[in-house]
Structures are given as structure tokens and as C-alpha cells.
Design a protein around this nucleic acid. Structure first.
Lengths: 389, 389
DNA sequence: CGCAATACGCTTTGATCTTTACAAAATCGT
DNA sequence: ACGATTTTGTAAAGATCAAAGCGTATTGCG
């Protein structure tokens, strides 16, 4: 059911609605003429004209005076959404690295800053690196913190409504960190903290292999397994933010699954525990019997949890992402085979192509969604950075 | 994000929007004065006045001339949504019975017809009984088939997009039945076929114990276990209609769970297999050791599947429904205990109170939703029964 | 150079909501 | 009983907005 305004609509609101309609028609399109916009929205040409001029004077759009025209007739002015009117940030506070992306309102990435951090770093140190990265990202793009319209931070572990990771997190001492409050000292715009798996799922729907799907189960496969769920085109957090945490169920052996790789016989002592999985995948690719067995046992355990998610949600697509997605060539076919055996209706199984940046990319997308929500609910006055509350 | 009309809005559409706004303000409220509606919608009193009169002349509302007034000032005319403008049907095509409910647009049940049918009945026989029940229901309420605006039929087994139950159904020979087509010969209005667990979940959200929740896992517990999922206030079917079918996963012992009750030692030979569970529950209530053990084993197995659903979705409420919900006094506490052990965030666990009629009630609600969707998307002309396509 | 095609900008018209004003109908106070 | 008060119903005026129509500007083609 289309959600209609429950409140009555008067004329100014009508104008606002139509302005938003024009903004929508402007976005994700090349610079458009008034006639094109008129056809796209169903509004009359004069109406589009005055609205477009209003958008230009408000700063939401820019006008391109006609240059060399290829068509017959008088060359038309073209209007363009001013994506540079605002910027948003998505930052992945990972175990080994912190990666910040800064983009305009169209999602074009303007600046990227990445910095390594020790997995054992205390919260204070990690937060200090985060601050450095954010400062560098904002400064490097020639902006100031006041120009940022939304910030989303990705962390591991289930994030509750208040932005805390109280249930579980592998980051040492992180349970007591109030990341949203910390970021709030630096930015006055809305701040969102979200789980990394969920954000990676969002990225796959936005720019990844699941663009065509509205029901998606995203598997973040690495030394830890996680999942992100998109249902009916919307990222679902669950009532307490703990949706997708099927790994907590012992009957589903997600916690043990990566151990098959880590404890695979034949891994040389010179290989560090963090790189063991990569070694095993390579060995399996070379035909090593023991490595192949370990991969198979890994996939068998992974598939049980995936099957639980698939049977619960009946998604269109399952995306195999995370660090192990580089070895999708070894995993995908046996995973499909296992799922076929365990599931009622077989979903499409695809390997992620976004790589390790997908988490930050998803954070960026959530920031953009946050801006859109405010835009399309609060109406559009002049383009300025929104303030929290 | 609130879904706004992507197309431009002109003046007639504005009037339509406001008319819908008034209809919304009228529904689920006692007969209202123009002033009340004005406050509820934010529209001015004269605007509400003309719209309300338009609704009356269209047949969407009735006017109550002022009677004995209790307040000071001139007594106001009162407007009321004409729930009797249309009627919908929800019918449960169960294994043992067929139950049809006919209600007006407010969901007030006008007529009920129930008829038993053998569990082994062939499709032709079952469809004949269904036809009889529907005829009796329509005729008994003084209506004709043309007065019905939507029909929803509940069946067991996953229902795909075309209304078939191709994956699985316990009804003999039912896989090849096209129920929607069968009903289409009798009704020209929209027809929906849906899984019984999902509809029971909808009923619990509508009129049951989960009215306050937007994220619900409904367990249909009986000799067969099923589940229905409501996420963000909306019933979710999954891409292929097979959402909630966690019972298909062997690691989750849902298929075997009821066997603990059926095979409980001590059940007299005089008790039929269908009544064995009830006997065990009663014996457990009386303190029978073996029966208590069987119930505990049953709950332990049930809880694993429930935990898989809860961990996947992180719902606010888990509703224990279905035939066994009569014995909720024995199940609820151990179920809570097991879930506490298995889950990350403990949801609220509640027993259904709607009983065996919840499936038909949910079907009724889905019919009402179907009508609402058409109403609020297609706009409201005169109230007439919609036609398919 | 003239004609056709297209886009632009202005004016008029019609529809809708809001504001304001005033009459009608009931209760309350004296 | 009668006027004051309060609330409702209704009408008129003002404001806003989109649609329709029409003249003008600019380009391409013959």
C-alpha cells in the first residue's frame, strides 16, 4: 500500500510535493530539459518551469545554458540536480582498518581515507584513529564538518536502538563505547551507527551484484560469519537491531565453520593464523586433498546457517561476501549444492564483487538514505546541513 | 522513507488526496463532526465540509442528523464511514473444516459459515464443500457474489506468486489445484490465496495478542509446525512465498517435535492418534511423569526452530498459536526458558487467544488490506466492487 | 532566404483551500 | 422568559497553484 499523508494537503504543500517530484525526476538522470521533466512527472510544462526555477534559486539545481545542440528546434535549457549541495560520510570502523568515504548527494565519492589500526587497540586508541581519519577525509575534500549532512559508522556486533553494541563485539572494550555520542561532538548532523554485515548488504543492493533484487540474504564470510537482511527492498534491523545473528545458534555451526580452514592439516607454521584460510583456499585451488576437504567441511557448516536464513526469509538472492568472497570460485558451487539439498525454493547464489570496501560503501548509502528521508518527509527548503533532533 | 507519489499532483488529485485523508480520519472513529475532522486532518472546516458532503453523495459516508446534544452550542451533524458500502470474505480451507467469514469494510463480521470436511477428501470434494460454504455465506448475509469486494482463501503449504501450493501441502492431490482460478468463476473481485500460518500471524497483529508489535514471529503449533512472519508491520511472504518454512531444515527438528507427544508412553489405545497430544497435555497437567517428559522434549525441539526464526529476525513478540495453544500453560514457561538459553535478545513470548478461527480471521484481514490498497492507490470514485485486473 | 520544428515566456482560466464573516441553533445565566 | 454565549452551517472573498493557449525566439533544412 502506498503510504499517503494522513494529514490534509493544502496548496503550499502541493507545491512542495511537486517540487519533490521534480527533484526525483532530476536525480539519477542526465541534465534534463523542462519538456523531459514534464513528460517524466506528468506535470505541465509551465508548472515544471516555475518549479525548476525555484529549485535553482533555492540551490537544489543548476541550469546549463544551451550549448551545441544536435536536435532541430530551439535548444533547450537543461536542469541538473546539484549533487554538490551537500555531502555525507560513511565510515567503516573495522578490526584491522578504518575506512572513511565522503560523497556528494548523488553518491559520487569525493574523497577516501584509509588507515590501519591494530586489532588489539584499546577503544581510546581506535577512536583517536577514527577522529584522524574523519578529519583527514573532511579536510582533504575541502569541506568542513558543518558541510556534512549525515554520518554513518559501521561496527561489528549487533547495534541496538541507542547505537551501542551491548550484545557482542570482537573489539576489545568496545561494549561501553557510545560511538554516536563520540561522533556527535564533531558533527552536528544526524549520526547513525550500524552493524557492518547489514551495511555490506545495503551496498550490494545499491551498487553490487544484488541491484535487481528486493529480498536479499547477504553472508559476510570471513574468520567470523555474519549476515545482513534486505526484505522488500529495505534493510531490516529487527526490533533490537540483532536481526541476522543466526550464528548464535549452536545447532547452526557458524562459529566453528572457519575453524575447519584454520585447523586444516598441512598449513605451514610460517603462515600466521590470520592468513591460514587464504593458504588453504590456495592449496585447494592447487588440488591439495586435505585443503579441499577442509573447504568442503567449511562450506557444509556455512550452508546450514545460510539455509536457516533462506528457509526463514525465502530471498531472491543470496550474496556471498566478506573476506572469503575472493575464494568464491571454490565456495559457490558446493554452497549451491548444499543449499539445493537443504532448502525448499532455491535462491540465486552470487559472489560479491565489491570486496572489502562494501561495508564503508553501505555506510555511505545509509547516510544518503538518512538525507533522503529527511528531504522527502520534512520537505525541501534551502539545502543546508540538517541538525540532529 | 515515506513513499511519496513519484508523479506530479494536480488540483483534482489534491482533492482526491484530501478525500482519502477524510476517509482515513473517519475510519476507526465514532461518528465525527466536521470540526473534529478538521482538527484530525489539519484541513479547514469549510474544506472538510464540502469533502464530507461529497463523500456522502458518493456513498462513502452517511450523515447522522443531530439528536439529543449534551454539549453547549449548536449541535453538529455527524459523519460516519459507511462500512456497509462493501463486504469482503475470508475463508479457511483447512484439513478438517472449511470456515468462511463475511465482514463489512470495518471488519465487522456479518455472517459465519463452518462445515466439516474429511481430511482424506479428494480436491473435487473439498472444492464442492468450499463452494457450498461460500454460497451459504453470501446468501446468508443477504448479499450476492457481485457485492463482494475481495476474497482471501487460506490453505496449508507454501503458496507461490500464482496462488499454487506447488512445494508442499498435506491435502491429498492439492498440488495441481488452482484455487484462485476456481474461485474466479464465482467472484469477479480480486482473489488472494495465502498460507494459513501467515494469515494467522496477520490475525494476531490485527485483533490478537500482538496488536502493539510491528515485528512478530507467529508459531502455528499443532501436529504440523509452521510460522508466519510480520516485519515492520507488514506480512512477509518471501520472494517465492516460502518465508517461515524453517521446519524444512533437518537440523531444526520441527518435523519430529510433535512425535514426542504422539509416541509418549502411557497413551491408552482408546485415544485416536489425532487426540494423543491433547491426552498427553492433560496427563502432564495432572502430574504424569512420562507425559511431562514428552512435553519437555517437544518444547526443546520446538524451541530450536523458534530460536532460528528469532535469531534471524529479532522480533519484538513471539506468538504461540495453533491447536496446541490451548495448552500454552504447559508450554510457555519452558519455551521461554529454552529461548532465553538460545537467543541473543529475548523477545516477548505470548500465547494466542484467538483460537482456531485465527486463520479465517487473518484471511479476512488480508481481504480488507487488498481493498484498502486499491482504495488508497487507485483513488476513490463511487463505492463499487472492484474487478480483477 | 523562407519554412518547419521546437522551446521559451507570458496571460488567461479553472480548481482548490483558507480566511473572514454572518446567520442558525442550541445551552447557560439571570 | 429572554438575552448572552457558544458552536455549527454556509456563503463570499482572497490566495495559490496548475493547465491551456498563444505569441516569440532560435535552430535546422531545403
Amino acid at each position: 500500500m502506498t503510504e499517503l499523508a494522513t494529514t490534509g494537503t493544502d496548496l503550499p504543500r502541493l507545491r512542495e510535493l511537486n517540487s519533490l517530484s521534480i527533484v526525483r525526476a532530476l536525480r539519477d538522470h542526465p541534465p534534463s530539459t523542462v519538456t523531459e521533466l514534464s513528460q517524466r512527472t506528468g506535470l505541465s510544462r509551465p508548472a515544471v518551469d516555475v518549479i525548476a526555477q525555484g529549485l535553482v534559486s533555492d540551490g537544489w539545481a543548476t541550469v546549463l545554458e544551451p550549448g551545441a545542440s544536435s536536435a532541430v528546434g530551439r535548444p533547450a535549457r537543461r536542469y541538473q540536480f546539484r549533487a554538490g549541495a551537500g555531502h555525507v560520510i560513511g565510515v567503516d570502523v573495522g578490526v584491522h582498518k578504518i575506512l572513511a568515504l565522503l560523497a556528494d548527494l548523488d553518491g559520487n565519492i569525493v574523497h577516501t581515507v584509509r588507515q590501519a589500526v591494530s586489532a588489539e587497540a584499546e577503544p581510546a586508541e581506535r577512536l583517536a584513529v577514527l577522529d584522524d581519519v574523519l578529519d583527514a577525509c573532511v579536510a582533504g575534500s575541502g569541506k568542513s564538518a558543518a558541510d556534512i549532512w549525515a554520518v554513518t559508522a559501521a561496527v561489528t556486533g549487533a547495534v541496538d536502538a541507542s547505537g551501542r553494541t551491548s550484545f557482542f563485539t570482537p573489539l576489545p572494550g568496545w561494549k561501553s563505547v557510545d560511538l554516536a555520542a563520540h561522533l556527535g561532538h564533531r558533527f552536528s548532523c544526524p549520526i547513525v551507527v550500524e552493524n557492518d554485515c547489514k551495511l555490506a548488504a545495503l551496498a550490494e543492493k545499491w551498487q553490487g551484484v544484488a541491484r535487481d533484487a528486493d529480498d536479499i540474504v547477504y553472508l559476510l564470510a570471513g574468520m567470523r560469519n555474519g549476515a545482513g537482511l534486505i526484505i522488500d527492498g529495505v534493510l531490516r534491523r529487527g526490533f533490537g537491531g540483532a536481526a541476522g545473528e543466526i550464528g548464535a545458534l549452536k545447532h547452526v555451526r557458524w562459529l566453528n565453520a572457519p575453524e575447519h580452514l584454520q585447523n586444516c592439516p598441512g598449513v605451514p607454521d610460517t603462515v600466521s593464523p590470520d592468513d591460514a584460510a587464504a593458504w588453504v583456499f590456495n592449496a585447494a585451488r592447487d588440488g591439495d586433498k586435505a585443503a579441499r576437504g577442509a573447504v568442503n567441511r567449511y562450506v557444509k557448516d556455512l550452508a546450514v546457517g545460510a539455509a536457516a536464513l533462506v528457509l526463514t526469509l525465502d530471498p531472491q538472492v543470496v550474496v556471498f561476501g566478506g573476506g572469503f568472497s575472493r575464494s568464491a570460485d571454490l565456495v559457490l558451487d558446493p554452497l549451491r549444492h548444499e543449499l539445493q539439498r537443504l532448502c525448499l525454493r532455491m535462491p540465486d547464489v552470487r559472489a560479491s564483487t565489491l570486496g572489502a570496501d562494501s561495508v564503508a560503501l553501505g555506510a555511505l548509502k545509509l547516510s544518503l538514505n538518512e538525507v533522503d528521508t529527511r528531504l522527502f518527509s520534512a520537505g525541501l527548503s534551502a539545502p543546508v546541513a540538517p541538525r540532529r533532533q
